[in-house]
């Protein structure tokens, strides 16, 4: 709905101000295709890393290692797998969330916290790979550590706010 409205309004506005809508659209679409193509190898590298770490079991082992810290921060233990997956893979995190909802019930504290955490975090690794990859930049300075810390705290905040609302 919003997609259609936005597109139609943008086209009307441009047409009324006498701009060539069609040729501008085609120009932009070409840019979009090039951008997507440039980013694919970087996304492949990120997915490769995540896939390998998950399949070999290193990810869940690391999650178990993290559980005392999570307890200190007030994050329920049941959310650890989600917390580990969230920065790495959007679809894997969504699958895990679905599992939590069906296991604990949609209105349970665990499921609500999981939802709030999903809603207040992003797939950090993928975002960084895509954005930097599209301009062929290979170093990320302090972006990754801050992104991961923020991701961890999305769970802390979600666990906290879900207790009261």
């Amino acid at each position: 709905m919003i997609v259609l409205l936005l597109t139609a309004c943008a086209f009307c506005y441009a047409a009324f101000s006498g701009k060539p809508v069609y040729s501008a659209f085609v120009d932009g679409a070409m840019d979009g295709l090039k951008t997507a193509a440039r980013a694919v190898p970087y996304v492949a590298a990120a997915l490769l890393l995540v896939g390998a770490l998950r399949a070999c079991g290193a990810l869940s082992a690391f999650g178990a290692l993290l559980s005392p810290i999570a307890g200190l921060l007030g994050i329920p233990e049941e959310l650890l797998p989600l917390l580990m997956l969230r920065p790495l893979s959007g679809s894997a995190a969504l699958a895990e969330l679905d599992l939590l909802i069906s296991e604990f019930g949609p209105d349970s504290y665990i499921a609500r916290t999981a939802c709030a955490m999903m809603g207040s975090s992003e797939t950090v690794l993928y975002t960084i790979a895509l954005y930097l990859g599209s301009i062929q930049v290979r170093r990320s300075r302090y972006i990754l550590p801050i992104g991961l810390i923020t991701g961890l705290f999305s769970a802390v905040f979600a666990a906290f706010f879900c207790r009261f609302t």
């Binding site: 506005y13 701009k19 997915l47």
Partner: peptide, 29 residues
């Protein structure tokens, strides 16, 4: 993962075609 990346890239490319096109139109006006 390699296959997933290409599939993801293709679906991204589709969305980018639309949005980059609309963006260009918005920019021009």
């Amino acid at each position: 993962s390699g296959q997933a990346a290409v599939a993801l890239g293709l679906s991204l490319a589709g969305a980018y075609c639309l949005w980059c096109g609309v963006l260009k139109v918005m920019e021009l006006s």
